[in-house]
């Protein structure tokens, strides 16, 4: 139940981020174009779009961090499996488990480091502010230049995404241990979309 909800949330989030980033840049380009057109430009000038690139970058970085977690679940992260594919199934299995645990180790470490960084970079101050006990030696974190959002919120994609990714590695590892199956990504296929209809052309009369 929990896993199902998490899966859905993850998929909706990354699809939304992809669409939103594309839309933002499209609108920004159209806005800049209109700003050069007489009569419309006065209106266009009133609209501020200087933050578009910054927002797009933030959206994509978030998409990257959570999409990478989704990618563990779909088996899209490519590795050099030439060597281990020639081993006996038992040995191959050991290396697969080693690889998955290494992934969990790295992402887990990043989640902790990222968490520490975000905490020191403003989250601590925000927390103390929230509970009404500001302290001199805990400084307020920086903001992003254009949107002026606190960077600790923006950067929290690292600990959150990495923690989720770590969970996914452990999940895949457990499944592999139980069933011996790994998620496999098929490049030639977008899930849920029908196969292409083959071409129909006339042959030359001999």
């Amino acid at each position: 139940m929990f896993n199902k909800a998490l899966n859905h949330l993850e998929e909706i989030l990354i699809s939304f981020l992809m669409a939103a980033a594309t839309l933002v840049i499209f609108v920004a380009v159209v806005h800049r174009y209109l700003a050069g057109v007489p009569y419309i430009q006065d209106l266009a000038l009133k609209i501020h779009m200087s933050w578009a690139q910054e927002l797009c970058i933030i959206l994509f970085v978030w998409m990257c961090k959570f999409g990478a977690a989704y990618g563990v679940r779909t088996g899209i992260h490519v590795g050099v499996d030439v060597v281990i594919n020639r081993m006996s199934p038992a040995n191959r299995g050991r290396f697969v488990i080693f690889g998955l645990l290494a992934g969990a180790l790295f992402t887990g470490a990043i989640a902790v480091l990222g968490g520490t960084f975000v905490w020191d970079n403003g989250a601590h101050h925000a927390f103390l502010d929230l509970i009404g006990q500001p302290r001199e030696d805990v400084f307020e974190g920086p903001t992003t230049p254009d949107l002026e959002w606190p960077t600790w919120i923006v950067y929290s994609a690292i600990p959150l995404g990495s923690a989720l990714m770590c969970y996914r590695f452990l999940q895949v590892c457990w499944n592999f241990y139980k069933t011996g199956e790994l998620p496999k990504h098929d490049e030639s296929h977008v899930e849920g979309i029908d196969e292409q209809t083959p071409l129909d052309v006339k042959e030359a009369k001999q």
Partner: peptide
């Protein structure tokens, strides 16, 4: 000044 600022890398 009446110009449109563009933030750009």
């Amino acid at each position: 000044l009446g110009a449109i600022p563009q933030v750009m890398a």
